[in-house]
């Protein structure tokens, strides 16, 4: 049997991984794994995994890692990075952890220009707890806690994380949004988000649009359509802030 090549920094004893079929996490984690390999930072990278589906990756990498509480990965990474600046600290979280319960940590870490990298996976719902409405749920989108569709009149509009982070960070911060449907771009942005920390430039934030067919209750075609059409028309892809120059490979 021919298996696709796994990044060297993935931890084989914990594979195959525990994500649902059709979930985008595996793609984000692959981009992260390849970026860590290519930047040759496996031995000094510390991953922090938030609660939510993100935590299923707590032993995913052949890197030291800490699974934290819901929303609290950011302060744990801040504590580690400030204590051991030589380590590369990467927080991995979902939209609920980052934009809702952990938003005060995200905002203040960004304002303080903490030299850490945060990768936030946006799949427009709370996956692990069974598909509730998230800050990123699209208007009209049905979830377990918005069964008639999200009504912006009563629950507001989707949170645009990178736009908000870009507005409050320093010039040397890195802020971008990628998607699991454009792998080359995703990997390039992931590398940039890590390089920015390696070069001590400051806060680095990457949101990745991702899929959740289990809770979206979609088939493969519908899943991809929702990602590429519905989500991308609300959440625009690209580098909002980059000290490396846009489009640099």
């Amino acid at each position: 049997m021919l298996l696709p090549a796994m990044p060297k920094s993935w931890y084989l004893p914990t594979k195959p991984h525990k994500f649902c079929p059709g979930c985008g996490h595996g793609i984000v984690l692959k981009a992260l794994g390849e970026a860590v390999d290519e930047l040759n930072i496996q031995d000094k990278t510390i991953f922090g995994f938030d609660i939510g589906c993100s935590l299923l990756a707590w032993d995913f990498f052949g890197c030291d890692s800490v699974q934290t509480h819901h929303g609290r990965t950011t302060p744990v990474m801040v504590g580690i990075k400030r204590s051991r600046p030589e380590l590369i600290c990467v927080g991995y979280m979902g939209d609920g952890g980052g934009y809702s319960i952990g938003s005060q940590h995200l905002l203040n870490a960004a304002v303080r220009d903490e030299n850490i990298t945060l990768v936030l996976v946006n799949n427009t719902n709370y996956g692990m707890t069974g598909g509730q409405m998230a800050p990123t749920t699209l208007p009209g989108q049905k979830t377990e806690t918005s069964p008639f569709g999200r009504d912006p009149e009563t629950t507001g509009y989707p949170t645009k994380g990178p736009e908000f982070i870009a507005a409050i960070t320093s010039d040397s911060a890195y802020v971008a949004r990628a998607t699991v449907s454009k792998y080359k771009q995703l990997k390039r942005y992931t590398k940039n988000a890590l390089r920015n920390q390696m070069e001590n430039k400051g806060f680095s934030f990457l949101e990745v649009l991702s899929t959740c067919p289990t809770n979206w209750k979609t088939n493969a075609q519908q899943t991809w359509n929702f990602l590429e059409e519905e989500m991308e028309s609300t959440f625009r892809l690209g580098e909002l802030k980059t000290p490396f120059g846009k489009g640099v490979k």
Binding site: G79, R82, S83
Partner: peptide
Amino acid sequence: RSFLQTEDEISAGFTVCGAVQSGKKS
């Protein structure tokens, strides 16, 4: 020695968790 005034007590506690995990008395 260092100090950080965090955004709230939740963050203060978790940054201490991170600092001690990294091997520092905090």
